[in-house]
Computed example of a mutant assay.
Amino acid sequence: MRIIHLGKIVPLNLVLLLLLLGVAACRGEGRTAKKLAQDSQLAQESATGKSLDGGFTFNAVTLDQTDERGNAIWKIKAKQAVYSNNNKIAQIETPIGDLFQDGKLLYHVTGQQGEVHEDGQKVFLKGNIVATDIQNGVVLRGNELEWRPQEDILIVRNQLIGTHKQVDVTAQEARAFSRAKRIELIGKVVAISKQPILQMRTEHLIWEMEKEKMFSDRPVQIDRYVGTAIADRGVGDTGEVDLKTKIATLRKNGQLNVLDPPLQISSDLVVWNVEGKTVVSDNPVRIFHRVQQVTMTANKGRVDLEPKIAYLNGNVYGVGKRPPSQMRTDRMTWFIPTESFEAVGNVFYKQVDPPLTLTGPKAVGQLKDQTIVISGGSDGGRVYTEIIP
């Protein structure tokens, strides 16, 4: 079976001659929509076409499009194609096809219906769409597909579901860019990584396939699941998940609520190593213990979720509510389960009941029972105690 490609470099008289020969010789030749337009003029005097409501019907047809170099752009087989002279569009039934970029096969696509515009630069498919990315293994399902080869955009929309070995996604629309190896997900996006189970919710998500990263420039929520239950939840004005390193990053009003220990960690930069079980911020950070009712702030900090130790550096300030107390220091190590601490550098401690103020180079103690020991440190610094009657 011959497939005749219609390109801009082919003379019109040669095309018409080939079409005349092709129509007489073979019903299943390849056609672009423009070829169908020319074939429809010949179909009135041949057995290959049948007029239907002002259009012409072609059965078991193969449509294709090539670029100026002869490289395939797309090739679609259809059970039936109906060409309309009025709107210059070929309507196709049960399309199955391949989409190409730079001569390479990119996607295998199927649908229930479709249409091809006469210029061949737009292909639409509708109904039970399945688009398989041959290079990356992503499968996009929806009810509408649009292929714009000149813009290197494949769009799948309307009840979008995407599956991949690393992550599953749902959204209102997906836009795949093959050269950039990027997929943009738009509208009510939910992305779930499989190991560990992280669920990412946002309105706009960019999935960089080669870098194995997903990031959003919109408000985002990231949940870590244990089984079917949410264990930890992070939110931020923007955020990203590195699917390879299992690190989630929250920026601009970032906040991570951890189940165990029961902490709320807030900063404009929260770096959450999910598998490493650490949370790090090099920006000013606030840590609130929801049970102990203790709040710590510092210029930067790190929390090891196992063995539940927080390390705070620079302008450390702590406030306890039960009982009321305050502490300032340069550096602090906070042993969360025992509510004990070690503070180094310019330590200031104050409690209300009984009234007491302590200052010194170093301190250890427990906030919950107000047991504090101030020492002079290795440099012999002075210790001051003030008891307020």
Rank of each mutant, 00 (worst) to 15 (best):
126 K>R: 12
121 Q>W: 01
378 S>L: 05
319 V>C: 00
25 A>M: 13
67 D>Y: 03
339 E>T: 10
278 T>H: 10
191 A>F: 04
358 L>S: 04
119 D>V: 07
338 T>C: 01
193 S>H: 02
320 G>E: 08
297 T>G: 02
337 P>T: 01
215 F>Q: 08
190 V>L: 08
12 L>Y: 08
224 R>S: 14
139 V>R: 13
221 Q>E: 10
7 G>Y: 09
320 G>T: 10
290 R>G: 04
114 G>R: 01
56 F>L: 02
176 A>Q: 06
86 N>R: 07
119 D>L: 05
61 V>S: 08
82 V>D: 04
200 M>F: 14
268 D>E: 10
219 P>R: 07
43 A>I: 05
326 Q>W: 14
308 K>Q: 14
91 Q>F: 13
292 Q>H: 11
371 T>Q: 15
215 F>D: 04
340 S>E: 12
15 V>E: 08
354 P>S: 10
262 P>Y: 03
111 G>L: 04
231 A>Q: 13
155 I>R: 12
244 K>I: 03
288 F>T: 15
41 Q>L: 12
351 Q>F: 05
146 E>Y: 00
141 R>F: 11
18 L>R: 13
24 A>I: 06
72 A>P: 04
62 T>H: 05
278 T>M: 11
51 S>H: 08
22 G>T: 15
176 A>T: 04
324 P>C: 03
122 K>C: 02
51 S>I: 08
289 H>A: 09
284 P>W: 12
302 R>H: 06
41 Q>H: 10
367 L>D: 01
86 N>F: 12
237 D>M: 13
111 G>C: 06
247 I>W: 07
86 N>K: 11
346 N>C: 08
266 S>D: 08
312 L>R: 11
88 K>T: 04
58 F>C: 06
320 G>V: 05
46 S>T: 15
337 P>G: 04
130 V>R: 13
220 V>Q: 00
145 L>Y: 01
224 R>N: 09
257 N>R: 15
288 F>N: 15
275 E>Q: 12
147 W>K: 03
186 I>P: 10
8 K>W: 07
334 W>Y: 15
156 V>I: 13
23 V>S: 12
295 T>R: 03
98 D>A: 01
188 K>G: 14
141 R>C: 03
84 S>R: 09
22 G>W: 13
138 V>K: 03
104 K>L: 14
198 L>T: 03
339 E>H: 11
93 E>H: 13
280 V>T: 11
54 G>M: 11
128 N>T: 05
265 I>T: 01
142 G>N: 01
367 L>Q: 06
